[in-house]
Amino acid sequence: MNATAPLIEVDKLDAWYGQRQVLHAVDFTVTSGEIRVIMGGSGSGKSTLLRHLLGLQRPAAGSVRLFGVDMGKASERERLDVRKRIGVSFQGGALLTSLSVGENVALPLREHTDLDESTIRIMSRLKLEVVNLGGFQDLMPSQLSGGMVKRAALARAIVMDPRLLFFDEPSAGLDPVVSAELDELILRLRDALRMTIVVVTHELESAFKIADTITVLDQGRVLLTGSVAQVRAADNERIQDLLNRRPREMQVDAEAYLRRLTQEQT
């Protein structure tokens, strides 16, 4: 694969939950070395887009390519190869509660490499040091605070030295200091380990701080993809609503409203 080819290419992606369409023909490209923030309000489809990027859901229409591999059509072997090259930090951390922090971080190495036990131990402790959790390897996930869980999840996500890192809501549920620390950490990872990072968030402050480029999603459509300055200067009303924390103006369709009220349950 040549160096200029995008790491992620999403082409006309549609997604549905039952009868409701949550993504409408989304196009999305991320090139190597950038920090891309996917921004949008609740229900804008950003989590759904992330699930498709990770190959956890098959596209209803359109395609998702990671490292040039179409995740919807790839064989199991190809998908596994892609997954070894990506790291994901989930919103709630998603550490396996039955394993200690150290075992959680070591899990990808244990499953995908033939390294001996002491190398695995050293490598996983190294990554725990990177996220400032040195010495916490023997605790269980339930003994960690919210911020520590996120950092431990980050350590697990980067333990295989992925080229592409996904981060879902890094600052959700954290106090401002801890979330600022996480932002710093994300910037450091990009600079030190040359990772390409995709962050999904609705926190404006942290988005503007870490992003190289921002994609704004609204109601399943991409409103804009551009640099921080471009997003700030955008004259789109919905983007300005998001930036200025303005409540959106609801337009009530009288017919639909009455229909919803009177419709019999099916």
């Binding site: 990770l54 919103q91 550490l95």
Partner: peptide
Amino acid sequence: ARIGSMSVSQEVDALAVIGI
């Protein structure tokens, strides 16, 4: 119970994206 609580807390998804 184990698998149920794992899917609720996204641990099952985490396993899948780790490649397990």
